[in-house]
């Protein structure tokens, strides 16, 4: 008689889900926060928030299933908004932090070294987009969401999501067409 495979626990299922989706979730979190450190805090709090909400719905037992895309992205956004409200006094300082992130070459993407310059240009161009457009581009391109799902996650209409995406791509094209700028080039000059 063959042994039955052990059913996956909720923690194992969430770990698998987190390992698979965390790079794109963190990328989105970085679009709605001012520093890499804040983005990590926001992502962690959002995952815990969704876990607790699902646990509550399941009568206090471990949650069934893993988060839906709209559910987790909405949670990330709300936690980021809460963080922003709580820490308005830190805004000036955080603006400096994001400059450091840029200067130190903290990047959104992994990429072969030969594309490093281009990747830096794209990261820089993305940073220059308005937050509303950055959110949509990130969810569409790297989150793989439909405009309907994006609308649901960001609490906007599907048409608004689609038009923001179009504006964002046009802005990126213009920005990258100009050749962009390598924000960490100066670091590598000896």
């Amino acid at each position: 008689m063959s042994a039955q495979p052990k059913p996956q626990s909720a923690h194992e299922a969430w770990e698998e889900w987190f390992n698979h989706f965390s790079p794109r979730l963190l990328l989105f979190a970085r679009q709605v926060t001012r520093s890499a450190a804040d983005a990590e805090d926001v992502l962690q709090n959002a995952v815990v928030k969704v876990w607790n909400a699902r646990r509550k719905r399941n009568g206090g037992r471990d949650p069934i299933g893993t988060p839906d895309p709209a559910e987790i992205y909405t949670a990330i956004r709300r936690v980021a908004i809460d963080l922003g409200r709580r820490e308005t006094r830190r805004v000036k300082r955080e603006e400096k932090v994001i400059d450091f992130d840029e200067a130190r070459g903290i990047d959104y993407f992994q990429c072969p070294f030969e594309n490093r310059e281009r990747r830096a240009e794209i990261t820089s161009a993305l940073r220059k987009l308005p937050e509303a457009q950055r959110e949509v581009v990130t969810l569409k391109i790297w989150g793989g969401l439909t405009f309907q799902e994006i609308g649901s996650a960001l609490e906007i209409s599907e048409n608004t999501a689609a038009s923001r995406y179009r504006y964002a791509l046009e802005a990126l094209r213009r920005s990258l067409g100009k050749g962009g700028e390598s924000h960490f080039q100066h670091l590598l000059v000896l």
Partner: peptide, 17 residues
């Protein structure tokens, strides 16, 4: 472009939380 991976520390912290 592939989003950069998250750190092992973050994964550990999330699971612990």
């Amino acid at each position: 472009l592939e989003p950069a991976p998250v750190s092992a520390t973050l994964t550990r912290d999330v699971l612990a939380a």
